[in-house]
Design a protein around this nucleic acid. Structure first.
Lengths: 220, 220, 220, 220
DNA sequence: TGCTAAGCGAGACGGTACGTCCCGTCTTAAT
DNA sequence: ATTAAGACGGGACGTACCGTCTCGCTTAGCA
């Protein structure tokens, strides 16, 4: 996390790990309270009770600091694999949604926008924030294909985007929150287009739902 | 455009409309060259060969100025109505895409992000940038419903979001540009879910395409 | 008062005299409340419920406006002539003091300072504010000389400055207010230097004081 | 000089003393060229080839900067003590005059005027510009009293003001420069009023003048 | 009575400076 | 070598006035 030291051999006084933690914590706190605009290296240093130099030694600028803070919060997303394609997708997309709901839409948008002028930032944004949940959905589609649930000619990339974008679109534009029921509807609509035998899949998921945990349909 | 005068009765020297135009033009030029971060009221005034005060008289800050510039560029979107639901949607969404491709993704993202802390800005963003193309698609779905092309129980709002988001998602995240072929595919997938008689619609659109102009399939 | 019209023949709509009065009044009010720095043409126009142009038509800038306001307040100073040199001087200097105590010291100082870069302002300042009270004292010294009270070789200009400066010095630097008693002391000290027969003058004034009005010795 | 740092313990990078010097120098240069009105923090920073922030770190605003510049120029005034009261006073007052002649009258007046709305500025103005020369004259009067040259009942404060004001009056109003001859005359006039044995003092000074350096009688 | 010249209010115009905030770099002494 | 502290040059913020200008309307005296 953060910038590596210049020289590879760690001589001299080692970096104080509490400063990493304090800086990340301060950044997250400011993001929650005042949004992206409130994060300045000066403010973070003030709040973390550290010096600006200690921050700049670890991250080259505000943007990378914010990215580090956000990816520290989001962490890793798991891929469900229950054998039921519809259930997996619903479950997986809700993980997707939950992960991004931990980030204020304006913060995500600002950081994304700043990526335009900083390729390295963009690379890290993709690897650490954008791709993990997409990968999870992608893996679930692969599993479904392996089970033979999908038509061989289905355009999985498009479905991936349509499912992913549903969440991001509403998250970023924030005009309506997305409910689990809507996720379910969207999954059904899209699977209707790419499944080999959609009615069978639906029947499978209904039986599981009756026998097991009921899906949460609360608003997200 | 811009701030209204305080009193509704226009007394005093009238505003010079060339300054409005010059400011909008300068803002767009800077946005194209240097992105959102390059736009400062000082820079715009410099480039428009006007005074900072003349800018502040019209727009309260950088954000509103950018919004005015973007909506001046985008203008109004027309709603096609050819009687062919599939053609209309393809055409309409391409207008949608073309409109937003005139805006750098980082600019759109930054402005959107700044909306979080300024309700009035957000309101104008929605009215002037977000809703016009959505309305166009919405009207096309209404037309399709009036023609009896759609299942009565279809969730049009969700389809609207899925179609709209396809564009915005890729525009904002910019990982891949969206081709007209992909739009076609998405329209077909979603209509497959909500159309009363999808094969008939498809056949209709194919006949029109053969007899008339071929859809542009260039990358967007 | 104020600028003359350009053309000497007064055609067209005549100037509204109430605006002159309102502007002077507003200026004085602002000077009293907020000092010289508070006077801006915009503020005066606001307070006088007139337009900036109406002000600029009469006075070329803030400084001349302030000068006009101050000299309107001070007006003319009379020269006492009772035949008693000491009484006249005491009386005359108190008029001097009273006149300048109507002006905040900082206002006087600021205006004076601005005179440095505006010869016309300086000329008017001298004629309308600085000289009138000095002339009064000067006339009193002339009267004393005519009565034969002064030594023929006395440097009247210096005495004039010493007497005048006593007031201005304390007024401008404001470290102590000047009492009538101090004025009396100063007059006696200086007359001691230039009078032909100082004890006789003193005796004369004492007799008059006993028989007539007692000098006010309140602090100024 | 300038603002003290917040914490009394000097941690962090020390202030660059060359910037203090450059700022003071630039301020004095601008004062001489363009007067008080020409001094803006921006202009000083420009001329001193430093940043505005570096100026504001040292002085809270234009006024304090000007005060610092003026007091740097004036420095300390010495008190002569030759045993000859008349010579000392002439000499001392000429130091007084010379010190203030290094300051343009409008600059002094403007600064003084600005003191009205800033008590701290006023305090420093008094301590650094107004009192030093006054103290010198005051000390000379004390020395004269100790030598037994003055009448015990003499009002030294008044004489101090009369002598001091002579200089300031003409300096501020600038109507005539003050010559050493006039100073001599004024000293003689006033000592005539408060000396125990004025003719003896005069005789003493004359003998010294014949035997030593002749007083400068050039215009000031 | 209608013409014409100026006054008037309102407010836009190009400017300048304000004092504040933050940037990302640097210098210092202390650990 | 890292740390806290803070100075450095720089740039932009949004505000307040400057003194000039352009409007449409009002108010006279002269014809």
């Amino acid at each position: 996390m953060g910038l590596p030291r210049k020289g590879s051999v760690p001589t001299g006084r080692p970096r104080d790990p509490r400063i990493d933690a304090a800086a990340i914590g301060a950044t997250l706190a400011i993001l929650d309270e005042s949004g992206y605009g409130g994060v300045s290296v000066e403010a973070v240093a003030r709040r973390a009770r550290s010096a600006k130099t200690a921050i700049y030694r670890r991250w080259p600028n505000r943007q990378h600091l914010v990215l580090a803070a956000l990816s520290a919060r989001i962490g890793e997303a798991a891929t469900p694999d229950t054998g039921c394609t519809i259930c997996d997708l619903n479950e997986g997309i809700n993980v997707f949604i939950a992960a991004f709901r931990q980030i204020r839409p304006d913060v995500l948008g600002s950081l994304l926008a700043d990526c335009a002028s900083d390729p390295e930032l963009r690379r890290q944004f993709m690897v650490r924030l954008f791709e993990p949940p997409r990968l999870a959905v992608s893996r679930m589609l692969d599993q479904a294909a392996q089970r033979g649930d999908l038509r061989p000619d289905a355009d999985r990339a498009l479905v991936l985007d349509l499912l992913g974008s549903l969440v991001h679109y509403r998250a970023l534009f924030g005009h309506v929150p997305t409910t689990a029921a809507e996720v379910e509807q969207a999954v059904e609509a899209l699977l209707g287009g790419i499944a080999l035998d959609y009615p069978a899949l639906l029947e499978h998921s209904r039986r599981l739902a009756e026998g097991g945990a009921v899906h949460d349909t609360h608003a997200l």
